[in-house]
């Protein structure tokens, strides 16, 4: 069994990121690149998408936490991602409770139990 260590990255609202940084997951490298992005009303979708792509391309990240309402903004990118590492986890945020029907993994496996063969792309 091979084992190695990696970081956890977060894309979410201020309180969620603050909480996880308090838990000790924050990492700043010598170029001042962080492993988190705080999304507020000034953050553009382009920034979120670029950060998501950057985190999923980094080899030192094992899990990317993303608030579900943020993931909904870049749903086409999140749904297209299918690598096991880093794992993408959609988490609830303070103002938006978790909706399993919007989760990319659960939506992918949901149509296995239903008679609808169209798959997760049908929900748009």
């Amino acid at each position: 069994m091979a084992s190695n260590t990696a970081l956890l990255a977060i894309i979410g609202d201020e309180d969620t990121v603050t909480g996880f940084l308090l838990a000790g997951v924050g990492n700043v490298d010598i170029r001042r690149k962080t492993n988190y992005l705080i999304v507020d009303n000034k953050t553009t979708v382009k920034t979120i998408e670029d950060t998501f792509k950057e985190f999923t391309a980094r080899e030192d990240i094992a899990i990317v936490l993303i608030s579900q309402y943020v993931a909904n903004m870049i749903r086409f990118v999140v749904d297209r991602y299918n690598k096991p590492i880093p794992a993408i986890l959609e988490i609830p945020s303070k103002d938006h409770p978790y909706d399993p029907s919007q989760d990319s993994i659960l939506a992918r496996v949901k149509h296995m139990f239903s008679s609808d063969p169209s798959g997760p792309t049908n929900r748009y």
């Binding site: 990696a6 603050t18 997951v25 590492i85």
Partner: peptide, 24 residues
């Protein structure tokens, strides 16, 4: 007193990291 402006941007390592192991 609790805001993102207070986050430290000095180079630092995460004190909590994730260990990934590939199961057989």
């Amino acid at each position: 007193r609790i805001s993102q402006a207070l986050f430290s941007l000095k180079p630092q390592s995460a004190s909590t990291i994730i260990s990934v192991s590939e199961t057989e």
